[in-house]
């Protein structure tokens, strides 16, 4: 069980959250071209180690949080609000 320290609600079980994927991808400018949009929508680093990702606290405050989690050990290093920097 992952224990996620929601910045708004405190420590909560992972059951209260939905995973929403890699938080490092950024939407390109509207005319950035097909390659840029391919990278945004489909291509992923898929790191073995630290991964910055979105989780949606759907059964709590209903906000999105940005989590830094290790994909090998499942350790969670930081949990931040969506507009805060992860580092």
């Amino acid at each position: 069980m992952l224990l996620i320290h929601c910045p708004y609600c405190g420590a909560r079980a992972q059951d209260e959250f939905h995973y929403r994927g890699d938080a490092n991808v950024e939407r390109p400018a509207p005319h950035a071209g097909q390659k840029a949009f391919y990278d945004f929508v489909y291509a992923r680093d898929n790191p073995r180690g630290w991964h910055v990702e979105w989780w949606h606290h759907y059964a709590g405050c209903r906000r999105w949080v940005k989590i830094e989690r290790n994909t090998v050990t499942h350790e969670i290093r930081t949990v931040k609000g969506p507009t805060q920097d992860t580092r």
């Binding site: 069980m1 992952l2 992972q14 990702e53 090998v72």
Partner: peptide, 13 residues
């Protein structure tokens, strides 16, 4: 399990 992982062991939920 529903999130990126290389751990090769699953979680309880």
């Amino acid at each position: 399990d529903g999130y990126n992982s290389y751990s090769q062991h699953g979680n309880l939920p």
